[in-house]
Design a protein around this nucleic acid. Structure first.
Lengths: 153, 153
DNA sequence: CAAAAATATATTGTGCACGACTAAATCGTG
DNA sequence: CACGATTTAGTCGTGCACAATATATTTTTG
């Protein structure tokens, strides 16, 4: 009866910070943020704001809830962020007359006009990653699987 | 002369949110945080606080600067975080008498005693990832390369 | 040795991220 | 139809994350 269901011993080697997958993800997320910053500063967006613009550029106007589902963010995060995008004149927000609970987020002309900057931004970041298409796609898919495992519960 | 140095066109397909490596990393970082939360709540730590404890458990007392280098965080982030760990009675902070600029962070008895909880925490997270050792190591190494590319410049 | 440069930490202000809560609108069932 | 449950946004409080700045302490240099 030496086996226990939980707490199977992990060797000290595996406890090192640089062996942790979670830290690799955490630190890479910060590195991405820093790589994006100088590029996004030029267009006046933060990285999360850029993500919101990406979904609007891709799919057009939609309620806050749907944006949140795609980004995995709740209203506590999105509400103030959207307010800032609105103040910057990039998006508009109106209550859906069909269902007054929902707020439909749309692109202003100024916001829609920024779409042409996607190419520059993505090219710059793509270069910074130092990954070719294939490598990037592989890593992305692995992360998506990992994320769905973590979320599963 | 149809080629341009920058702005090589990216097909619309590749602009989709779910095709972005950056978003995969960003969203996975959040997913990890959420997976850790219920586990770390029980020991009263946030995830970044847990990372600080990891480096202290691994290497013992050391100055703020060195902790920051390992976690890639600056004093603006660490100072208030360490203050909270100190108030929780897990660490101590003293100026280095050899160099009064430095603050040496050390584990209190209570903080050191928590080390035995590592196994439980790491096992729980390891299970949640749904990855075997090999898969985890591969992903981690790819991320470390990606991160060093992004940081390179 | 004194002034200047470099180093280590702390503070402040802005913007996420999230849990807990509130308010308003809609839906469902008796 | 009515009223309780659900859905959708927004607000508030806490804790990162980081740029910019401040302060104190070395270290370097003229």
């Amino acid at each position: 009866m030496t086996d226990k269901v939980e707490g199977r011993d992990i060797p000290d080697e595996e406890k090192r910070l640089d062996r942790q997958l979670c830290f690799a993800v955490y630190a890479t997320a910060h590195a991405f943020n820093r790589a994006y910053k100088p590029i996004l500063d030029r267009v006046g967006l933060t990285y999360p704001q850029y993500l919101v613009m990406l979904v609007l550029w891709e799919k057009g106007c939609q309620p806050v809830k749907i944006i949140g589902e795609q980004l995995d963010l709740d209203s506590g995060t999105l509400s103030p962020l959207l307010k800032r995008l609105e103040q910057a004149g990039l998006i508009g927000r109106v209550r859906d007359p069909k269902d007054e609970r929902q707020v439909i987020v749309s692109l202003t002309e100024k916001g829609a006009g920024m779409k042409c900057q996607i190419n520059t931004i993505m090219s710059a970041i793509g270069d910074a990653t130092g990954c070719d298409m294939e490598e990037m796609a592989g890593l992305r898919d692995r992360l998506q699987r990992l994320r769905s495992n973590l979320t599963a519960e």
